[in-house]
Every structure is written in C-alpha cells, then in structure tokens.
Amino acid sequence: MKLNLTKPLVVFDLETTGLDIVNDRIFQLSYIKVYPDGKEERENIYFNPQKPIPQEVIELTGTTNEDVADKPTFKDLSKELEEKFSGCDFAGYNSNHFDVPMLSEEFYRAGINFDFSKCRLIDAQAIFHKMERRNLAAAYKFYCGRKMEEDFAAHRADQDTEATYRVLQGELDMYSAERQEEKERQLENNMDALAEFSKTNDNVDFSGRIVWKEMKDANGKVLLDADGKPRKQEVFNFGKYKGWPVVDALRRDPGYYNWICSSDFTSDTKQVLTRIRLRDMGR
C-alpha cells in the first residue's frame, strides 16, 4: 500500500560496531527517502567507525575493517546527512529503541544537535508486536482455538498455569511432524529439544552480566568439542572487562570478584561468578 505522507519519510537501518550507544559507532547507514509524491531515493553509506569492528560483527555483517578503512567518518558526512534528513520523519525496525538513539548520538558527537523530537518516529517492530500480541491470552486463542475468558478467570496464577499447560500441548500438536512438512517448523516432543528451542539469549546468569561466547584459536577459527560443536566459555558482558573471559579477568584482577560480590548485583550473578571462580581454582 502506498504510504500517505505529508513530508518525506526516511526508512533506514544501521550496522554498528556493537550495541552500546555511547561507546559503539556506526559503520553502515542505508536508507530509502520516500517523498509525498511517491518519489524514492536510496543510499547506502559506509563509514570508518574509528574503532575496530569486532570479529562477531564482521561474521554477522560481512563487512571487515579493511572494507571501511578508507571511508569517510560519520563526522565527515554529518552536515550532508543533516541537510538530507532535515524536515523528515523516520521509520525502521526496532528503530525507536536502538537506531534512532544511535543516530542521534553520532550527530551529537559530530557537533550537530539533530532534534528528533520534531520528527515522527515509526517503528515497524512496535507495530508488529502491538498488532500481533504475544501474551498468554493471544497464545491460548491461537493454539487452543478459544478465548481465555471463556475458560478461565482473569489474572489468577492457577488459571494462568492451566492455560499455559494447554498452550504447550497445543504447540506440540501444531508443530508435530504429522502436521508440519518443513523440518524447521517441527518441534520435538522432548524436554531437551524444547529447552534448547526456548533459549532467546546466551546468558550464563539471568541478568546477562555473564554470557557464553564461542572459543577461537589465534587465527580466529572456532574451536570445536569432541561432538563437533563450538566450544564456549563464560565472558563478562559489562564493565571494564567486557568481552574478557571471566577466568582471565579474575586471574588478572582478583579484586574484581570481591568488588562484584560486595556491589549491587543480583545474587544469581554472584553465585554464577563464584561457581566459575571455584571451578578455575580446582575446587
């Protein structure tokens, strides 16, 4: 459907060195500028981020440090981008949470106060999540074919538990090999497979302060275990040792363990860290 525009809309996406809006940088900006008359302008810009692109980002995006070494910095093109984006609205996917704040931060670093508060910000992900709700009531209707209020009282743990049990049964029925031809649409009816499929992150602790990362050799090749699966190790995901294997950081700075244990971290994080430390000490 043609967009009903009253001013130009910039549909855009960024590739960045990481997800830290303060410390990471943009190395690719792609956008489509759509005008009210239907005219479209497309541009794909690469920047030298002035900091290394991490290996995991290189593998994800296919863009290497050599690819952007001779490109202009964001600041070099910031005035030009300000002119092109002035008077526009913006749209993206998860853009209100990440892409717009990151772009705004880059403008600030370049000495430009681009006022996004004057723009209408459209986030396709937010629309998707609000229109296709992912709560228990929506799941119950989808997998069980009935509305929750027809079968249960609202906001009662015992009722929600029963509904959840029926949803899980409905999921296994819908995604069984008998009903799904495509292998990737099938769910195994065993708890190992369901637990693995349920994972949405690589957190070691619940708060994500420590995460699993693949181990690599000196040439950047992923190390494999006896079953041919990537070997992983616990890595700090915050602070001055972000990206460091936990055991390496604690060997280098033993006081870091005491600082975490005496600070306002969750008990789970402290327990996970203690288990890693004791394991490394051979206890």
Rank of each mutant, 00 (worst) to 15 (best):
A153K: 11
A163I: 01
A124W: 03
V235T: 13
R185S: 12
A157K: 04
K141I: 02
E162A: 06
Y241C: 04
S176D: 10
L250E: 06
Q180I: 08
I210D: 06
I127W: 08
A218M: 13
N189E: 04
E132G: 01
D253F: 08
M215F: 00
E181Q: 09
L136H: 04
E234Y: 01
A153H: 03
P245E: 14
A218Q: 15
E162C: 00
N135I: 00
E150M: 10
T164D: 01
A153V: 05
L223C: 04
Q233C: 09
R231V: 11
E184T: 13
K147Y: 10
K232R: 14
A163K: 03
K199E: 14
Y241W: 13
L224C: 04
R166A: 10
N219A: 15
Y140E: 00
G220T: 09
K216T: 14
T161A: 12
A154D: 04
E132T: 07
F197V: 02
G145D: 02
A139P: 03
Y256C: 03
R251H: 11
F236D: 07
D123Q: 11
P230S: 13
D192F: 08
I210L: 13
R185H: 14
W244I: 05
D225P: 01
C144P: 03
K229P: 08
I122G: 02
A218H: 14
L187W: 12
K232I: 11
W244Q: 04
N203P: 00
A195Y: 00
D173A: 10
N201K: 10
N190Q: 07
F128M: 12
E171L: 15
S198F: 10
D202Q: 09
M215H: 00
D225E: 01
F236C: 10
L187F: 14
F197I: 02
G239S: 04
K199I: 05
D253E: 15
L136Y: 03
N219E: 14
M174Y: 15
P254Y: 07
K147E: 08
G228C: 05
A139F: 07
Q180L: 07
A163S: 06
A154N: 06
D151N: 12
A139G: 07
M174T: 15
M148V: 09
G228S: 03
G170A: 05
E234C: 13
E196S: 09
A157P: 00
L168Q: 06
G145L: 03
D115P: 01
K130C: 02
F142L: 08
E182S: 14
L136P: 02
E182N: 14
M191G: 00
G228T: 06
